[in-house]
Amino acid sequence: MGVLSAFMKGITRLNDFVGRWIALLVFVMFAFLLLEVGFRYLFNSPTVWTNELTQLLFGVYAVMSGGYIMAHRGHVNVDLIHSHLAPRKRAFLDIITSVVFFIFTLALLWFGIDMARDSMSSWETSFSAWNPPIWPVKLAIPVGTGLLVLQGLVKLLEDIAIAFNLDYYRPSEQAEEEEEYL
């Protein structure tokens, strides 16, 4: 069972690492928008690249967030039934509904890979006036979705451990570790 624990910890760490770096993109987006306003208003010469680059970064920022948020239980749900259930029953329920989660994310992963591969076959650019490559942003879709799927797998393993009293995962340890990040 050591392998499972290591896998779960590893994936959560990975998502944390990625998330903490991607989160900083908000400063970059802010800086570029401000720069554009400055160029246009002060120098009367808008750039061709700031708004488009900001938008591309925003796409990466948004799609890469899935796994990190999953790791921190940030995807909101309705807890009407959840809040009345004992942890084991809740875990059972989550195991069942995870089927819907995997249907969505795996379909997205499949076609995300397809889309990214297609885009990379021609090193697709945006064909705007600035014409930057956009394949990296398309590539972010399967990467971000993949991270989400992996974190979903971690969540599933946790639920299985709770539901069946398996000892490769103890919820309390995890909870303490979570505290540090908040």
Binding site: G19, I22, A23, Y61, A62, G66, I69
Partner: peptide, 9 residues
């Protein structure tokens, strides 16, 4: 990041 990501997903 967490809140924007939640909204975006």
């Amino acid at each position: 990041f967490k809140l924007t990501g939640m909204i975006m997903w």
